[in-house]
């Protein structure tokens, strides 16, 4: 490649990167300026934190944060434990009905979300769990998606490692803990990220199944600002969005350190 070529490639790369982050830049712009600047990109426009304080006052966000953190932690930990066990069974054990069971688990991914609402509401009510945090998480304790992902990962682990561990007298749990969990770690990290953001942002089910401040997650608080008869307040929505996704973004930053580090190590080895 000639110099101009690399230069052009770089410029194109940066243009794409700019397009990529444009939505975020816009969100930040709108959140830190008074509402009248939401459509006017005046660089001299004064910065303000007023939108954040307005958003904070309109809903009990502190409580919503707590609920959301409880919720995603609960879901992720249960998912990781249950799905690792199941994925191991699918990847490494032979038993009659295995394919059928795997198909059933996968079908979970293919159920239209809309049909779940009414039936699951009935089930949760029968369990006496309406308006609890557990009710929001319970249907997601099984993740067909995680099982599928971990199965794919576990299948790539050389069987020799398995046998070596067994020869050393490892129990099943020991084997999982010493071989499968460490080798599946990148996939688990990636899944963790996906699961946390999915449930952090999940809206409809939590909205329907909960009624009170004590149980509701952030997204419900965020939806308070959506379009009403009096018009959409973009600055407020963007401030609330940044506020509610900030912990998640921070989590991402910490996460990608981990993620890239383990990746670098893999490269050096």
């Amino acid at each position: 490649m000639t110099r101009t070529d690399t230069f052009l490639a770089r410029v194109a790369g940066w243009m794409l990167a700019l397009l990529w982050v444009l939505p975020l830049l816009y969100a930040i712009w709108a959140a830190f300026h008074a509402p009248e600047f939401e459509a006017k990109f005046d660089l001299t426009a004064p910065l303000t934190l007023h939108n954040f304080s307005r958003a904070w006052e309109q809903a009990p966000f502190a409580r919503y944060f707590l609920n959301t953190i409880l919720l995603v932690t609960m879901i992720l930990s249960v998912q990781l434990v249950l799905c690792t066990l199941a994925a191991f069974a699918f990847a490494r054990l032979e038993f009659p009905g295995k394919n059928a069971a795997f198909a059933l688990v996968l079908v979970q991914l293919m159920v239209t979300p809309d049909i779940l609402l009414v039936e699951n509401y009935k089930t949760i009510r029968a369990l006496g769990l309406v308006d609890t945090i557990v009710a929001i998480g319970l249907p997601y304790f099984a993740s067909g998606f995680a099982i599928f992902l971990l199965r794919q990962t576990f299948m790539t682990i050389p069987r020799e490692l398995d046998e070596a561990a067994r020869v050393e007298g490892c129990t099943l749990l020991g084997l999982l803990w010493r071989v499968y969990v460490p080798l599946g770690k990148p996939a688990m990290l990636a899944f963790g990220l996906v699961s946390v953001s999915h449930h952090w942002n999940n809206f409809l089910w939590p909205l329907i199944i909960t009624n009170s401040v004590e149980t509701r997650p952030l997204t419900v608080g965020l939806s308070l600002f959506s379009t009403t008869d009096s018009g959409t307040d973009w600055a407020l929505i963007m401030a609330a969005t940044l506020m509610t996704s900030a912990p998640l973004l921070l989590g991402f930053l910490l996460f990608q350190r981990q993620f890239v580090q383990s990746f670098m190590r893999a490269g050096i080895k």
Partner: peptide
């Protein structure tokens, strides 16, 4: 009287219907 926000109009109506069918 305990008010509870249930989303947009359409969401509120669906929530009420789901709840009605579950007797809640």
């Amino acid at each position: 009287v305990t008010p509870s926000f249930k989303g947009t109009y359409a969401e509120t109506m669906t929530a009420a219907i789901a709840a009605f069918r579950a007797k809640e």
